[in-house]
Nucleic acid binder design. Structure first.
Lengths: 295, 295
DNA sequence: CTGCATGCGTGCATTTTTGCATGGGTGACA
DNA sequence: TGTCACCCATGCAAAAATGCACGCATGCAG
């Protein structure tokens, strides 16, 4: 009874995904290939591993057991690759960074352009996503996160503190100032149930017009005049269309960190990007905490 | 930075073997394939893994690290396959047994023939070797061993006790009887420094004519008249050319066990062979302890 | 020094693996 | 009920991996 290691990896992907297409995506092959590798593995082992159902491939207990073993193999593989990357002392080759979309758009893009110019041998990949990528599984080498704690096995470097501000179109702000007790429209982030308490202290009557699960959309909604919205100051402060609600101090918000896996601490590329990020954010510290730029 | 799992397995084999041909043997592929897989892995990782030397491939520290990870992956893979085999309740498919050559020649061969007839669906592979195969690495499902202790993670079933006897050609035996104080020639197993003490008590003067590290050769040497030799009674007792040295009680020797991995305890095939072995050895118990067959 | 065993690299034909295109089935939804 | 979005199986052609044959270097024994 023999088995091909890549077939085990395929079984793992299929158990995880549940469908041929899903597994194929994860492995960057076609689903036909997944189907045939599974078929081959079943022949090798002399027993069926998956039940073919109209809604997908259903894993038998045997397949699940193989997948558990394959998952443990994967941990070993990834640890080895991380260690290998960690040994890498050259400023060349691939380097992957993940960061929140908006931070890239507003601040990181020009910085990264400079970094690439300074390090022409580094092949930088940027994954602009709000999803939390798994640094342990090497989905990225570095992650810029807006969060309060680094996380397991990860090494964090604090880049900047952040505060939030409440902004809206000038006419809405003017209305609120002229009559603080009038009902104020809000657009808020999904998950928050009410506008910030400090705002309610000044403007107690509110109506929630909409909720969005995406900051870009939230900004667009505010610009469309849907209401007031709370956002990190780096987004609100320089937008010519939006204006802060007066009388409110900026509120604390989760700081910005850059994280990497312990194993990559010694990697020259990772260190280079961390150092550059630290320098960059030092010059821009106020962007994230001060409502108005200093003269 | 990506890597193919079978390439990791190849790196492991190459680090272990040190040469392309050796790794190729272990993997049952051609050495060309090993060379090309390594080349591909090196390209993927963007760094060399082996130093090509005239005497073979020399692993770099990176390759050794990858190999260590791959070895841990291998442990997982093999554990999974063992568990899978353990679930196997059918009396069909592959089954591998390892046993000492001589035991197969003299006793096991007819027994195994019967077992195969009784279980025509089982595809039995016999590995006749004196090397201790690794049941953990699934080099065999069952092992018949001449040894005092089963070993780690293995489950043993005692098949028979054994004794040894000292035999030689009739003329040598006759000479020893006629003059016990004459110098007696011996052929002994490598590792033993002297003939057995109980023999020296009766025949104190000895000369070691040769040492052999292989029992078959030892027997041939005894038959060629090189001297007296000590061997398990199952080998000596029925050989028409050889005769026991009189006055010596059979001496204790390591018993015969059949071993299998814990994970395979539930496998129907493994259990079937164990049961059959136990029954067979019960009827042949005396072959291994009595110098003369009973009338 | 020569023959021989062992080890490596490379070009080429063969085999295997892969992806694509097509067809069929099922369930959600207007 | 028709459409759409997902599933899956299979035939076929392209692409990749493999094995083989050959040539070359090295170390060792006679």
């Amino acid at each position: 009874m023999q088995i091909n290691w890549d077939d085990m990896r395929t079984i793992l992907a299929l158990v995880r995904a549940g469908t041929l297409a899903g597994a194929a995506d994860a492995l960057s092959v076609s689903y036909t290939t997944v189907a045939r590798r599974v078929q081959r593995a079943e022949e090798m082992l002399g027993r069926p591993l998956f039940e073919r159902r109209p809604e997908g491939y259903f894993a038998s207990p045997e397949a699940e057991e193989l997948a558990r073993a394959a998952a443990r193999m994967e941990v070993q593989e990834q640890a080895a690759l991380r260690h290998l990357s960690g040994r890498d002392q050259g400023l060349s080759g691939p380097l992957t960074l993940t960061a929140p979309q908006l931070l890239i758009q507003t601040h990181l893009a020009p910085f990264l352009a400079g970094f690439c110019r300074d390090n022409p041998e580094i092949e930088l990949t940027v994954r602009a996503t709000n999803d939390v990528l798994d640094l342990t599984r090497r989905e990225a080498d570095l992650a810029i996160r807006i969060s309060k704690s680094p996380g397991d096995n990860l090494v964090g470097l604090h880049l900047a503190d952040q505060k939030t501000t409440c902004v809206a179109l000038p006419e809405i702000v003017a209305g609120a100032i002229s009559d603080p007790s009038a009902t104020l429209d809000w657009v808020i982030y999904t998950g928050h149930s009410t506008p910030p308490k400090s705002a309610l202290a000044l403007y107690p009557n509110y109506r929630i017009r909409a909720r969005f699960d995406d900051m870009t959309s939230l900004i667009a909604a505010a610009k469309a005049g849907l209401g007031v919205t709370r956002m990190p100051v780096y987004l609100g402060r320089n937008d010519p269309e939006l204006q802060p609600l007066p009388g409110l101090e900026p509120q604390d918000y989760a700081p910005i960190w850059v994280l990497s896996h312990q194993d990559l601490l010694q990697s020259a590329k990772v260190r280079a990007l961390k150092v550059a990020l630290k320098q960059f954010f030092r010059t821009r510290r106020d962007d994230f905490t001060q409502i108005q730029s200093l003269p």
